[in-house]
């Protein structure tokens, strides 16, 4: 009989021997996957660096003259030309620029003459904080509402969440920001209307300045996440393995946590990754409404002033952030979905 041939106890290896072998292969597989994803990310960044560099080259006519503006003197144009190295062959220009990037030197601003890297590093904290908090707001509100709606399809909770999500997606963030300011800062003076303070000035003060902008920024993403989470939970509920778990006696929190959420999380994480890039863009608008001088206002000013090195620095910085977040999302897949680990 088959069972006796294969299942006999003498064929079972000593405890430990296979376990360690298995662990070892699992680790190598994961490490290889991480390296591959990392390599892919670096390749993307390199391509972005080429496109960013070409930004200046693609200006029609003489870039130095365009950058300097209509009323510039001949000396100013000449200064910009030498500063950007526009006289050299294109390839040489790129190599100089790229080797600068590798050393962390993104060039100097054409207007303030300060280092681009330093300026970005100074402007980044409020933007990074508000975006991160917006993600937090989105995940907490969106995923919770989505799970509640998905588990109670057709109920008043489900309908309320769907309606709120549609509204949330339809509302532009600048409008939402103004409504929030008027309700929570002007009509009821509970929270400051504008500005940003560092967390070192006190957690409470910091939080009071962060709540409104991150909510304004995060609610649209919360709405998007709620819709996706609802759909994923509803889909997972129809899967045979949920029925199997129920047939084993699983129910309630046990069933939701072990069988439904983990499987529903896979597409939700994808959406979250995609939304992060959008949040960075949305931060520009929200910063403007709340009068916060972060990366957003830096980007707008640089564009208006045609401060090309600054624009290039901002684009590269954003690309690094987006690539890093995608890497994290990829790694999260592997953690959530065992099938990806070996892929």
């Amino acid at each position: 009989m088959w069972i006796e041939v294969v299942g006999g106890s003498r064929h079972v290896p000593a405890p430990g021997s296979f376990v360690s072998a298995h662990r070892w292969t699992e680790v190598t597989v994961s490490a290889r996957m991480v390296l591959r994803r990392l390599g892919g990310g670096l390749l993307v960044l390199w391509l972005v660096s080429i496109l960013t560099f070409l930004l200046v080259q693609l200006i029609p006519g003489d870039p130095a003259e365009v950058i300097a503006g209509e009323n510039a003197t001949v000396e100013e144009v000449a200064r910009i030309r030498t500063e950007l190295g526009l006289g050299q062959p294109v390839l040489e220009q790129y190599l100089n620029w790229f080797s600068g990037i590798l050393r962390g030197d993104l060039g100097d601003s054409l207007f303030t003459n300060r280092s681009v890297a330093t300026t970005i590093a100074e402007a980044a904290p409020p933007t990074v904080v508000i975006t991160t908090m917006a993600i937090l707001v989105a995940v907490v509100i969106g995923v919770t509402a989505g799970i509640a709606a998905g588990l109670t399809q057709g109920s008043w909770i489900d309908r309320a969440v769907s309606a709120a999500a549609t509204l949330g997606i339809a509302m532009p963030s600048f409008w939402l920001a103004m409504v929030l300011v008027s309700v929570f800062a002007l009509t009821n003076p509970w929270l400051p209307a504008t500005g940003y303070v560092d967390v070192r000035s006190g957690f409470g003060v910091w939080l009071s300045h962060v709540i409104l902008p991150s909510t304004a920024l995060g609610l649209a993403t919360a709405a998007e996440l709620a819709r996706h989470t609802r759909g994923c939970v509803a889909d997972v509920l129809t899967r045979p393995y949920v029925r199997t778990a129920r047939a084993r006696g699983a129910s309630g929190v046990w069933l939701i946590r072990r069988h439904i959420l983990r499987n529903a999380a896979i597409p939700v994480v994808t959406v979250l990754g995609l939304q992060t890039g959008r949040l960075l863009g949305g931060a520009i608008v929200v910063e403007a409404v709340f009068g916060i001088s972060g990366l957003g206002s830096l980007a707008i000013n640089s564009v208006l002033q045609r401060d090309y090195p600054m624009i290039q620095g901002y684009v590269l910085f954003s690309a690094v952030v987006v690539v890093a977040i995608n890497l994290i999302v990829d790694l999260a897949y592997g953690w959530i979905n065992p099938k990806v680990r070996t892929a």
Partner: peptide, 24 residues
Amino acid sequence: LRQIRGGPVGMVFQEPMSSLNPTM
């Protein structure tokens, strides 16, 4: 009913691939 499911009554389904939780 929960105590009976998986306790005194076990159940095996068609298509084992989709009937097992892929993340566990």
